[in-house]
Design a protein around this nucleic acid. Structure first.
Lengths: 206, 206
DNA sequence: TAGATTGTTAATCGATTAACAATC
DNA sequence: TAGATTGTTAATCGATTAACAATC
């Protein structure tokens, strides 16, 4: 369920703010959902709430972290050391949330060897070796669109089990390998669509 | 509809590859959908296909671009000149797809004035003026989570109509302002969830 | 003609919401 | 007790898929 990460983040923030109990209504309000939806979602988890109080924040966080695998670290490689790839490698949030970045790769000899945070850009030809040696399970694709499929094939062949695709192209992989697409450009286009929709609705009301 | 940007991208790529006609089946295959879904989606658009051939690629691209507002430029400001903000400002894909980045802002005096691509980091205190003077309609939030809500309030007050929120916190805005969240960390957590799901399914089959 | 494809209707499926008894 | 909240069932809603006549 794609809402689970949102619950986790929110509960973490609420706990940081000192909350001991959280109600379905509170979660719903903060995420723009209904209490019903939240209770339905949480009922699939191994957690139970209390009348008049809600859910124990600490327990809820622990259970959410568990089901999302956020209670252990996940090894990741980043392919593509352009602006986006480098930004991710340096982005503290990933390390802070249990992702262990095992390498950043590129084919451009001008960036290979360059330091990015605590890492050094490595030739893409070594990606198989690193993935196998270190048992990396996740790969992030941050290369130009035309190269995305080739990179995906290579990662899957090396044994990667999940791909986060940031490239502006769809990649096809054999079943058994998970792919999540996350494209800022598409999100922006969605935003434009919504903004125009709002503008139209507004005009209708007049 | 959040699939429209995907159709647009795909049709652009297919056209670049020389395709004159595209069928619903071809689109479906490339995006992991069914032909039915694609035809339903396109039926809401002002475009019609032809038996035995499909849709005219050029016409489809034009119509999709139109409904997504990709046929004109959209002014954007970026708030937050950290790794991610800077990467976006330098990221050619945005400019190339009709987004005109009118400024990148930060509150940290150590980065204010620094050059980022062709832009220069400006003090966040000037964001209202820039938004108003240039008629900017979209804002991208790329600041740490605790600052996100404050930035959103400020952008909305300045007249921004749509917000792309990359911060790891939910922002609440008055109705009439569109918000799209795009968080790499949440996408990664979703990926982890899917990878573990696959692993479980696999174990079940044995 | 045979075959491929659209456009649309109807069926299915799943997700969201409403409602409310049970509980504290 | 009164009131707030969960957990769950049933209803609603919307999105996806199947099916197929119409078309070229």
């Amino acid at each position: 369920m794609r809402r689970l990460p949102k619950y986790l983040t929110l509960v973490q923030h609420l706990r940081a703010g000192g909350a001991e109990w959280v109600s379905s209504a509170a979660l719903a309000r903060a995420l723009g959902l209904t209490g019903s939806t939240v209770r339905q979602d949480l009922s699939h988890l191994n957690v139970s709430g209390f009348s008049r109080r809600g859910y124990r924040a600490a327990e809820l966080e622990r259970v959410l972290a568990r089901v999302l695998g956020a209670d252990r670290t996940w090894k990741v490689v980043i392919v593509g050391a352009g602006n986006l790839g480098q930004a991710l490698a340096k982005h503290g949030d990933l390390q802070r949330h249990g992702f262990d970045i095992c390498g950043i790769f590129d084919i451009d000899s001008r960036v290979i060897g360059r330091k990015v945070g605590i890492l050094r850009v490595t030739s893409f030809s070594e990606v198989d070796r690193v993935v196998k040696e270190r048992g990396v399970r996740l790969g992030i694709i941050a290369v130009p669109a035309p190269a995305a499929q080739e990179v995906a094939d290579r990662l899957v062949a090396a044994g990667i089990q999940g791909i986060l695709n940031l490239a502006y192209a769809n990649v096809l992989v054999r079943s058994g390998v998970a792919v999540v697409n996350a494209r800022i450009l598409e999100s922006l286009q969605e935003l434009v669509y919504l903004v125009r929709l709002e503008a139209t609705e507004w005009r209708k009301k007049r």
